[in-house]
Simulated scan of single mutants.
Amino acid sequence: MSDDSELIGQNNSSSNANRSDEQRRYYRRVTRYVVGVVVACGLAFGIGWGLSFIFPVFLAKFLADFPVSNRERFQQLLLAMVLTVLIGLSVSMGVTNYPVILLLLVGLLMFYAYYLFLDPQWNFFATILLIAVLLLPYLGITNSGLAIYVGAGLIFSGVLAVIAFAVLHWLFSEEEQQNDLATASPDLLSQQQRVQEAIKALIVAYPVVVYFYYFQINGAILTMVFIGILSLQITTVKSIKISVFLLLTNGVGGLLALVLYELMVTTPEFLLLLALLSLVSLVIGARIYQQPEKAPIWAGVMSAMLVVLGGVISSDSKFIEVSFYARITQIILASVYMILASLLFDLWRSRSK
């Protein structure tokens, strides 16, 4: 009887120790996320450089997607950052005088980015590739010098995000656990499934991209960045309806950006903005690490908020010349389109089975 009591006591103490370790890791990850987002926003909004608002967007995404990291991942992120921008620049410089060929190449590279994104090892490479392919050829059509300027800004923001990601993991380090390894290396989709998901994302996003390229819409850069990030997120949604996902991320993220913008206009204090961002990132970070199955939703909310708000605060008149509400309107229209296109595509695919 005493042996049984000792065994029960050991099991209880072991389970309490495991629970305590999990809580420490949870608090460490949330702290890392809040510190990273707030410091990145402070640098990007306070200093400002070409495409500086991309820096906190990338960093927030890295921290949400990779709670555990290592040297190999840092090296891969840096390599991906440089290579993808070079690919985007080469496309923008070579075929901008041939619109049909340019749009075909952009479509092919978008499909390839969606396909790669479904492999976690190529997640960041695909993200940078898609954004570079959307933005740089668009700018190269009208001004090749502007494409180089934005490409340099994209490289700088991306490399800075990777460095900040590495520093944050060094400051708030944690040991890899078995369940972390399982989370970091999920079961890959089959090649056929990856192709199907990539085609779905391309069908949803490509018509909007063609529209912006054809009509050269003013302020389209910010909207295309948003569409690129959002269309990548579509490929990862499995357990919820795509329309609900888009509605939640866009609606909540846009509403948060609107509230912060109005507070900033009413009380233009930079420290107040950082305090509000700390509160928002604390709530979102807690949700991301508390409910990993719903992490894409909360990460999407943060991306939407940072893209809209950051595009205004750190805007550069060289390539963004539309008002905050004009940007909001463009993103809302793009979101409505993507929701309807996703619904129609899902209906068509369900009926064809």
Results as ranks from 00 to 15, higher is better:
A44Q: 04
A341N: 07
T266Y: 15
V159L: 10
Q330H: 15
A164F: 14
A334R: 07
M110N: 13
V167P: 05
T235N: 09
I141Y: 01
Y337M: 02
A44P: 11
S323C: 10
Y289D: 12
L89D: 03
V237Q: 12
Y213D: 04
M93C: 06
F345H: 10
I87H: 02
E174G: 11
T142N: 13
I199K: 06
T329Y: 13
V252P: 01
A341P: 11
A205K: 04
G253Q: 07
A205D: 02
A286H: 13
V244P: 00
V30Y: 13
T223M: 13
F117H: 10
V195I: 15
L109C: 03
E321N: 14
L102F: 00
V106P: 11
L105H: 00
G140Q: 03
L43K: 00
Y214E: 10
G228K: 05
S303T: 15
A60Q: 08
I288N: 05
G42P: 06
T84Y: 01
S90W: 09
E321R: 07
A44R: 02
F226N: 12
S317C: 01
N97Y: 08
V162T: 11
Q233T: 03
F117G: 09
M264H: 14
A326K: 11
Q75C: 03
P120E: 01
R287W: 11
P268N: 10
M338G: 07
L181T: 05
R287V: 04
L108C: 14
I313K: 01
S315V: 03
S303M: 14
L247V: 01
L232D: 08
G107I: 07
W49Q: 06
A44D: 07
Y115T: 09
S303A: 15
M93K: 01
F74L: 12
R29Q: 12
G228P: 10
A341L: 08
P137H: 01
S90A: 15
L154T: 07
L260H: 08
F270H: 04
A184N: 08
F345M: 09
T267G: 00
F319Q: 04
F62D: 01
S335L: 05
M302D: 05
G46L: 12
V106D: 06
T142A: 06
E22C: 02
A64C: 10
